[in-house]
């Protein structure tokens, strides 16, 4: 048992435990930061696996992503701090079954397969390799990812903007019922001032 083995098992336990906490904590903000910690543990494992760039880039990316995640939690959830206990789940038993089945299946595959054993050489210039691969042989793939990200930006703006070609996105918006098919919860839909203006003209 070398030092890196001990570190690996510690980080593995950390990654799995924080991942489990994500769905068990009442506070949504804590959930997003628990997910961030899970990613950090995986990033530390990547560092142990001699992938220095990928490891630190994961920390960098996940810090930003989970920050945004927490922001949306505070924005959309009714109880982001988890001051009241809450459990918002559906098809719970099926989901547990699917999760366990996925773990069992993938675990069995990992245990039963004859895996290749060819570790990366100690002095290999992995960061330089990655750079020349990204902007050399696989440039087309890398650029495709770039174009996809651009398309994502356009799609994001289109989806999330309030104003649209066929009127405001929240026109006639109605909250869901307190019970299925029941009266809408929360505030009633606001009447649009433009709309009433048109109605006056028509009538």
């Amino acid at each position: 048992m070398t030092l890196s083995d001990i570190a690996f098992w510690l980080f593995s336990a950390g990654a799995v435990w924080t991942a489990w906490r994500v769905f068990r904590t009442d506070s949504m903000v804590r959930a997003s930061f628990a997910l961030m910690l899970s990613f950090f543990c995986v990033a530390a494992i990547l560092l142990l696996l001699s992938a220095p760039y990928l490891g630190i880039a994961t920390i960098f990316m996940m810090a930003v992503e989970m920050m945004v995640m927490a922001l949306f939690m505070v924005m959309f959830m009714m109880n982001p701090a988890g001051l009241n206990p809450m459990m918002m789940v559906h098809q719970h038993k099926v989901s547990i079954g699917a999760g366990v089945a996925a773990f069992a299946g993938l675990g069995a595959a990992a245990l039963l397969t004859d895996l290749p054993h060819h570790a990366v050489a100690a002095g290999k210039p992995v960061i330089r390799d990655l750079g020349t691969e990204l902007l050399g042989g696989s440039m087309l793939i890398f650029e495709t990812a770039g174009i996809t990200l651009l398309a994502t930006m356009v799609a994001t703006v289109v989806l999330s903007s309030r104003s649209g070609r066929f009127g405001a996105a929240d026109e006639g918006s109605r909250p869901p019922g307190l019970e299925p098919g029941g009266k809408p919860a929360g505030r009633a839909p606001e009447r649009d001032s433009d709309h009433s203006h048109h109605a006056e003209h028509g009538g």
Binding site: A15, V16, V22, F23, V42, F76, H92, G99, A102
Partner: peptide, 19 residues
Amino acid sequence: AALIGIGLYGALSQQSFVM
């Protein structure tokens, strides 16, 4: 595999989109 299993459980069971 453990991470994927927990993730699959979360994706199937959570009602909130962000979760």
